[in-house]
Amino acid sequence: MPAVTQIVRLTVNGDLREVGVPMHFTLLEALRYGLGLTGSKQGCDKGDCGACTVILDGRPTLSCITPVFEAEGHAIVTVEGLADVEGPHPLQDAFDLHGAAQCGFCTPGILCSAAVLLEKTTSPSRTEIKEALSGNLCRCTGYSKIYDAVASAGQRLQVEAQLGESGR
């Protein structure tokens, strides 16, 4: 009695992809099992830990409790989509530099939440960072190094923006 599968069309990291999945699949299952995008992690599968956070239309979204069919027609960005041809996203570099990823299992979700925050402001206060990450559990770091990494990535984005403007 195989589950009924259906084709969904997902826009992930700029690519339009079609994938056949059982109708009850979550977005996380479609990403990991359907598309092989295993960067997004499953820590609880019930919306409690944030490891599965992706960016859906610019908002941090728990993909493990998002039915895949509700994701159709929306722009999805996963951890695999944060870097570009220029290299890693400043957040990714900062996480590496500051030791913000210990085991790294929470990291993809945290990066997505942090990337949305830095879209809003590149100079978030410590409280703003804490609030933005309050849905992402990290069991390794005690969060300190994560805050440092987010703040320093914000600073770099600011500098890059200034250089970009002056260059124009």
Binding site: A83, P88, Q92, F95, D96, L97, G104, T107
Partner: peptide
Amino acid sequence: RKIEGLDKATGRAL
């Protein structure tokens, strides 16, 4: 830096 730090920050780490 850690040798696998960037892998963990890019989703490449398995």
